[in-house]
Amino acid sequence: ETGKELVLALYDYQEKSPREVTMKKGDILTLLNSTNKDWWKVEVNDRQGFVPAAYVKKL
């Protein structure tokens, strides 16, 4: 879809709370919100949640 910003997972991340999502290094995720410098909201496999901003980079 146009207008979607994507990020690349630089590291594996295992969710530690229900508000977070698990990702694997190399995953491409849809970026939903990056206003917080530490935690970015992403969508992966129809799930939305937060990942550490340092673990992903914008494509």
Rank of each mutant, 00 (worst) to 15 (best):
K4C: 14
W40D: 00
E1W: 03
S17F: 06
V44L: 15
L29S: 02
Y11I: 08
A53Q: 06
I28S: 03
L8M: 14
M23P: 00
S17C: 10
L29H: 03
E5V: 15
P18M: 11
K58I: 14
F50I: 07
W39P: 00
I28E: 03
E5A: 11
S17H: 11
T30A: 11
K4A: 12
K16W: 04
L59D: 03
N36C: 11
T22W: 04
L59Q: 05
W40Q: 01
T30C: 10
E5W: 11
K41G: 05
V51F: 00
D12K: 03
E20G: 12
F50W: 15
E20D: 05
L10W: 04
N45G: 15
A9D: 00
K58C: 11
L31E: 00
N36I: 05
K57D: 08
L10R: 05
E43C: 12
L31K: 01
D12R: 03
V44Q: 15
S17P: 05
E20T: 08
K16Y: 05
A9H: 01
L29F: 06
I28T: 06
L31H: 01
K41A: 08
Y13W: 11
T30M: 11
E1D: 14
K37Y: 07
L31V: 06
T35I: 07
S17T: 12
M23E: 00
F50M: 08
T2H: 14
G49L: 05
M23F: 09
V21L: 15
R19Q: 12
V42F: 00
N33L: 08
Y55M: 13
V44I: 15
L32A: 03
R47A: 06
V56N: 00
L8P: 00
V7D: 00
L8Q: 12
P52F: 03
Y11T: 09
V56L: 15
K25G: 05
K37S: 12
N33P: 03
P52R: 03
V56G: 02
G49F: 07
T2V: 12
S17G: 13
V51M: 01
T30R: 13
E15C: 13
E20S: 06
T30H: 11
Y13H: 04
T35W: 10
E15S: 15
N36L: 09
E1S: 15
K4G: 10
L59H: 05
L31F: 02
K57W: 08
L32R: 04
G26A: 03
A9C: 13
P52Q: 02
G49C: 03
V21D: 00
K57Q: 14
A9M: 02
A54P: 08
N45L: 11
Y11P: 00
V42M: 02
N45F: 11
N36M: 09
E20F: 06
G26M: 03
Q48F: 08
G3W: 12
K58G: 07
D12Q: 03
E15W: 05
I28M: 06
T30E: 11
L10A: 04
E43A: 11
A53S: 13
E5M: 12
P52Y: 02
P52M: 02
L6I: 08
L59P: 04
L6P: 04
L59G: 04
E1A: 14
R47H: 08
L6W: 12
L8S: 05
W39C: 07
P18L: 09
D27W: 11
L6Q: 09
Q48N: 08
Y55N: 07
D46T: 10
D46M: 10
L32N: 02
D38M: 12
A53G: 05
K57N: 06
T2W: 11
W39N: 02
G49K: 02
L59F: 09
P18W: 10
F50A: 03
K41V: 14
M23L: 09
A53T: 06
Q48Y: 07
V44R: 15
K4Q: 11
Q14M: 12
Y11L: 10
K37A: 13
Q48W: 08
L10S: 03
E5K: 09
E43N: 06
V56A: 03
E43L: 08
D46H: 11
V51T: 02
S34G: 12
K41C: 14
E15H: 08
K16C: 11
K4S: 10
L29T: 01
T35L: 09
K41Q: 12
T35H: 11
V56T: 04
G26Y: 05
A9T: 03
R47C: 06
D27S: 07
K37T: 11
T22A: 07
Q14C: 11
N45W: 09
D12M: 03
K57G: 08
D46E: 12
S17Q: 08
T35R: 09
E15I: 06
R19Y: 13
M23C: 06
G26H: 05
K24N: 09
K58T: 09
E15Y: 04
N36K: 07
D38P: 02
A9I: 02
P52K: 03
V42D: 00
L31Y: 02
K24Q: 10
W39Y: 07
S34R: 07
T22G: 08
E5P: 10
V44G: 15
T30K: 12
W40N: 01
D46G: 15
E43W: 07
